[in-house]
């Protein structure tokens, strides 16, 4: 895989960079459109709480992580993605555990939140492995909880690898780069 997610950067943190591969998938190309459609379908599945439909979109070698961000200054000011600690640290099996829980007594989402996932600024490139694509997107989530008229929100960048398999794309890697060092959302009982 051509994407380097090294964790051993200076000070165990890394400078945030979106796309790594130089072989861009141009906007409007067939592959770009299909992958963008996949991101929209995924957002709809999660907003509509169709977790079975979402699981089908995941590859079994999935890694799903969200490193913490910290506020830094001086020479390290851009090394603010701390991969030694994460908000999500999941794989395919643990995602199944989470969705399984959501189907039973998960009071954090029962009653469920009403969510809107806005996916924008989507950029894509080809990985070295044929049929794998690096897909970077911005995600903005509005989450309405109970009768609270003020939504909780979060913004992040998602660095994905999607793989073509069985006529569709499967998510094989997602790293969620949140923007807040102190999250304003009460929990991540929703997926990003």
């Amino acid at each position: 895989m051509s994407v380097n997610y090294a964790t051993a950067a200076v000070d165990k943190a890394s400078v945030m960079r979106g796309l790594v591969s130089k072989i861009r998938v141009p906007l409007g190309s067939e592959i770009y459109n299909r992958l963008l459609e996949t991101l929209y379908d995924e957002a709809a599945a999660l907003d509509e709480r169709r977790f079975d439909d979402w699981i089908v979109m995941l590859a079994e070698d999935l890694t799903y992580t969200a490193p913490v961000r910290v506020t830094r200054n001086g020479p390290n000011k851009d090394r603010d993605v701390m991969r030694t600690m994460m908000h999500f640290d999941d794989n395919y099996a643990s995602i199944l555990m989470r969705t399984g829980r959501l189907a039973k007594s998960a009071w954090a989402e029962d009653p469920p939140s009403r969510t809107r996932r806005f996916v924008t600024n989507v950029r894509m490139a080809e990985c070295e492995t044929a049929g794998e694509y690096e897909v970077v997107s911005y995600l903005y989530v509005e989450r309405s909880r109970l009768d609270n008229p003020e939504n909780e929100t979060t913004s992040c960048e998602r660095r994905d690898i999607w793989r073509l398999a069985d006529g569709g794309y499967r998510l094989s890697r997602r790293e969620i780069i949140v923007d807040q060092s102190t999250l304003g959302m009460s929990n991540f009982a929703i997926f990003l």
Binding site: D89, R145, A189
Partner: peptide, 21 residues
């Protein structure tokens, strides 16, 4: 690390429910 992240804190399946209550 993975156990603690999956059980406690931000996305932990235990403490999600506390944070909502």
């Amino acid at each position: 690390l993975q156990n603690a992240i999956q059980q406690t804190g931000t996305s932990g399946i235990i403490e999600q429910d506390d944070a909502d209550t």
